[in-house]
Computed example of a mutant assay.
Amino acid sequence: MRRFSPAAAALLLRRSLAAAAAAASPALRSGPRQLVRASLLDESLSTQTSSAASTMAVQYHQWSSSADGDDDEVLEAFNRDCCTDAGAGVLDDSASTAYVEKLCTSGNLPDAVQILRHLHDRKIHVGLGTFNLVLEQTGEVNNFVLFAKVFRYLLLSKIAPDLTSYTNVAKALQKLDDYELILKFVRQVMEITHDRDPTVMNRIVFTTAKYGQIDKCLIIFEELKKDQRGLDVVTFNTILDMLGKAGRVDQMLQEVKLMDELGHSPDIVTYNTVINCLRRLGRLDQCKIFAREMVERGIDPDLRTYTALIDIFGRAGHITEALEMFDQMKRSHQPSIYVYRALISDLKKAGQFELAQKLSEEMKTSASELLGPEDFKHKFKGRKINKNK
């Protein structure tokens, strides 16, 4: 474990005690400074007077230092402890990382973020693990202003955020009720990533949707529509899937229409998402419309498409069409065990027991070659049949 200089250790202790005292004293919580309304990512921030803003003000006061002069003192202590050449100001990267992590784990989050900014200004970047630690800590204490700054420094470092980074974003947004802060955050991310592909925003939307934050996802999505550099077909597919699973089908269909109008051509994932949603609701006619449109656009159905269509035909009692679709699928794709089971069940419901028995025997005979749960779990689109065998 790295040992800090006496001055640095004393500063850490003093600031920890100050934070504890502020948390314990109602008087100290009663008058947060105007810095609470300071900028998100170093720009002025217009927040509405709300309970969320009030809470953030109290929390900021608890986490902030007791005197502005401490800021210089933080940097001085950091430089004393982490410079390998005090005269030339050469920093030890490993020492800098250890120092930030120590500040973070000791609860001195404003100091940790200040050091991150100091390192960023000197074009020195800590590792992704350190960024994720600070993101996690600032998110846990619900200080979104600090959280947004850390995420900004991560993006500017050109280190690619990972799943942990985006999960931290989703968790932070989950706790945030101030939509203006959310929009400000989105605009900042878009500004930083404007010369890149939409991957960053797509992953933010995906993880936020995964955490069930539908309305916040839609707010982000509406903002992305204003400047289409931040969205693509993947963004639309994520939103369509989220809306479909939430049962907001009419809204999903509206977004499909808008997708085309904005020049983003639907792909196989788009059609599978929409058809599967409509299948769950028993909307056979609309399933057929989208399946026909997909083929007309030159997109070949995959295993998921066939599985959905066979299931909806069978459940609607259209056994002949289901069997025709099944035969068509077998010409190009290895069937899955799900298709067999669905067809067998539908045949039994229709009273066609002999045909159901025949399919059951066929399923058992080819069981080793059928696609199962693991294939779908890994998003396997279906094993194409090698006709040269």
Rank of each mutant, 00 (worst) to 15 (best):
L133C: 09
E180S: 15
D232L: 07
D71R: 09
E101R: 14
I214N: 03
R187A: 02
S51P: 03
A170R: 00
Y179P: 00
L135T: 06
D260E: 10
A77D: 09
D260H: 08
N168V: 00
S39T: 14
L284N: 05
L262V: 05
D42C: 11
V169N: 01
R37K: 12
L41F: 11
S165Y: 01
V269N: 05
E354Q: 06
N237W: 03
E101N: 09
A7W: 09
A77K: 03
E76G: 07
Q254A: 08
N276E: 05
K384W: 14
F185C: 00
C287Q: 05
S51K: 09
T208Y: 00
R383V: 01
T305N: 13
F290Y: 15
L181H: 07
I275V: 12
A7E: 14
M252V: 10
M363L: 11
G127I: 11
P373D: 14
A291N: 09
G314Y: 03
V100L: 03
W63Q: 10
L176W: 01
P266L: 00
I344V: 07
S54L: 04
A160F: 08
I275L: 06
Q34R: 10
A21M: 06
D267V: 01
F185L: 07
P32W: 01
D197W: 05
S5A: 12
N276G: 05
E293V: 05
D121C: 15
D327I: 11
T305P: 03
L154I: 06
F376K: 03
T105E: 13
I268T: 07
V274W: 09
F185H: 02
T238W: 01
P335I: 09
S5P: 06
I319D: 01
N143G: 04
K257N: 06
K158H: 10
D197M: 07
A27H: 02
E136P: 02
D227A: 07
I289D: 14
Q48Y: 05
K389H: 12
A9S: 13
T47Q: 09
R80H: 11
G31K: 13
R283T: 03
G69W: 08
Q137K: 14
I289Q: 14
D232G: 13
K384G: 00
L116S: 08
D311P: 06
V145D: 15
D302E: 09
A308C: 08
I214S: 03
A308M: 03
D285H: 14
P335S: 12
E293M: 02
S332E: 15
D93L: 12
M259P: 04
G282I: 10
S265Q: 13
A52W: 14
Q357Y: 00
T320L: 12
P32H: 11
I219V: 15
